[in-house]
Design a protein around this nucleic acid. Structure first.
Lengths: 126, 126
DNA sequence: TCAATATTTCAAAAAATATTGAATTATTCT
DNA sequence: AGAATAATTCAATATTTTTTGAAATATTGA
């Protein structure tokens, strides 16, 4: 992952409406929700929802599939996890002990932070 | 974690400057960096940096410690991990198989997503 | 104490985002 | 084909966020 992608993802989740939409879709799971259902559930105008869905879509956090005259949206959870990997890459000044100590503070998350392998970004990484 | 906290965290990371600052501090590890070092490294004016640090601080993503006339900033990585736990809580419409399938898409992150124990938020959770 | 350094606060201007309602596109149903 | 439905695009307005430079605060060292 590169900076621009990570930035789009955080921008996408930095609005209350979009955060609600994404959570709704995460909770919905595989069946997702069509736009109208989302608008009703969250009490957002279709126009405004469309605006916010576009942001989530551009970030890759949701996908759409046309279903007749409906548009069915689904959450892309794995991308969210990749983003954290990007964020925590090359952490702790390369000190594995320090890295382990940090991990200790978030027990559930412990197994996630990779020891030191970190990201595989090439020279173009920003 | 509650919605308001998660929102502050994503807002905090939704600017290129703040994302750079946070990554710099994640990579710096325990010693962190004083404000002036950050400003120089990222070529941001002290005034503007101060503005952005305030956002990161309000979100809890960084901490400060006064050191003479310097202010030393450090990243709070565990909070970032908690945020993802919040985001992926109650996922997949409660279907564990579906949850497992999703996890399969992000191998490194696989161990992070808790099976179904999920968050411990009380009735006030938004 | 005085000058220099580090950082923050404040107020104004500039830029980016969000919201609204009307119009448009595309699909279904009769 | 024509009416109804689902959703998006467009253009205008409102709101929020970011940036800038000057001024203020606090600490250090002469």
């Amino acid at each position: 992952m590169q900076k621009a992608a990570a930035l789009r993802i955080f921008e996408a989740l930095s609005s209350g409406v979009r955060l609600d939409v994404f959570r709704l879709l995460v909770q919905a799971g595989k069946p997702g929700r069509v736009a109208g259902e989302i608008a009703t559930a969250l009490d957002v105008s279709p126009t405004n929802l469309s605006f916010h869905l576009k942001g989530l879509l551009a970030a890759g956090l949701v996908s759409v599939e046309q279903e007749g005259r409906f548009q069915r949206y689904r959450a892309n959870i794995p991308l969210m996890l990749e983003t954290i990997a990007y964020l925590t890459a090359h952490c702790c000044g390369g000190d594995p002990d320090e890295c382990a100590r940090l991990r200790g503070h978030a027990p559930d998350a412990a197994a996630f932070l990779p020891p030191l392998a970190h990201d595989a970004a090439g020279p173009g990484d920003q």
